[in-house]
Amino acid sequence: MSFEMLVALDVADDEIYAQYRREMTPILSRYNGSYGYDFKVSEVLISQVSAPINRVFSICFPSEEMKNQFFNDKEYMAIKQHYFTPSVRATTLIASYEKPDN
């Protein structure tokens, strides 16, 4: 089993967000995390939130505990503050779930 989250964003600045991804990826790897899918969305037909959505991705970890350790990592939090916060207007957690290994 692994733990996966399906996340939607409203990215305001693609360049800064891309820098966030470059900076945080080595930390994500340390926690055995990875992206499963990643989409730039041009049109949202149905949404349960009022925030716009222009990016949807899945992010996977070996366990929910590893996910929590990653998001609480001090180095990650500094990168998030520096790059993610100014580049993303809204974050929506669509789902989180345990995923059977294939």
Score class of each variant (00 low, 15 high):
Met1Trp: 08
Met1Cys: 03
Ser2Ala: 13
Glu4Ala: 05
Met5Arg: 12
Val7Cys: 07
Val7Met: 12
Val7Tyr: 07
Ala8Phe: 04
Leu9Pro: 01
Val11Pro: 01
Ala12Glu: 09
Asp13Gln: 08
Asp14Phe: 13
Glu15Met: 11
Tyr17Ser: 04
Tyr17Gln: 09
Tyr20Arg: 03
Tyr20Asn: 00
Arg21Cys: 09
Arg21Phe: 03
Met24His: 12
Met24Arg: 05
Met24Val: 14
Pro26Met: 02
Pro26Trp: 03
Pro26Gln: 06
Ile27Trp: 04
Arg30Met: 09
Tyr31Cys: 12
Asn32Lys: 08
Asn32Thr: 02
Gly33Asp: 10
Ser34His: 06
Tyr35Trp: 13
Tyr35Asn: 03
Tyr37Met: 13
Tyr37Leu: 15
Tyr37Ser: 12
Asp38Ala: 11
Phe39Gln: 09
Lys40Gln: 12
Lys40His: 13
Val41Asn: 05
Ser42Gly: 14
Glu43Ala: 12
Glu43Tyr: 00
Val44Met: 06
Val44Asn: 01
Val44His: 01
Leu45Asn: 07
Leu45Cys: 06
Leu45His: 13
Leu45Pro: 03
Ile46Trp: 03
Gln48Gly: 12
Gln48Cys: 08
Val49Met: 06
Val49Ser: 11
Val49Trp: 04
Ser50Met: 04
Ala51Ser: 15
Ile53Tyr: 11
Ile53Glu: 10
Ile53Gly: 08
Asn54Gly: 05
Asn54Met: 06
Arg55Gly: 02
Phe57Arg: 04
Ser58Asn: 10
Ser58Ile: 01
Ile59Met: 07
Ile59Leu: 07
Cys60Gly: 05
Cys60Lys: 09
Cys60Glu: 05
Phe61Ile: 05
Phe61His: 11
Pro62Glu: 10
Glu64His: 08
Glu65Arg: 10
Glu65Val: 06
Lys67Val: 00
Lys67Glu: 02
Gln69Tyr: 07
Phe70Val: 06
Phe70Tyr: 14
Phe70Pro: 01
Phe71Lys: 05
Phe71Pro: 00
Asn72Asp: 11
Asn72Cys: 08
Asp73Val: 05
Asp73Thr: 09
Lys74Gln: 08
Tyr76Met: 05
Tyr76Ser: 03
Tyr76Arg: 01
Met77His: 00
Ala78Gly: 02
Ile79Ala: 03
Ile79Asp: 01
Ile79Glu: 02
Ile79Met: 07
Lys80Glu: 04
His82Ser: 04
His82Lys: 14
Phe84Tyr: 13
Phe84Leu: 10
Thr85Gly: 00
Thr85Ala: 07
Pro86Asn: 14
Pro86Tyr: 12
Ser87Gly: 07
Arg89Phe: 12
Arg89Thr: 14
Ala90Glu: 05
Leu93Tyr: 02
Ala95Ser: 12
Ala95Tyr: 08
Ala95Gln: 10
Ala95Pro: 00
Ala95Arg: 02
Ser96Gln: 14
Glu98Ile: 09
Glu98Val: 08
Lys99Cys: 07
Lys99Met: 03
Lys99Glu: 08
Pro100Ile: 13
Asp101Met: 10
Asn102Val: 12
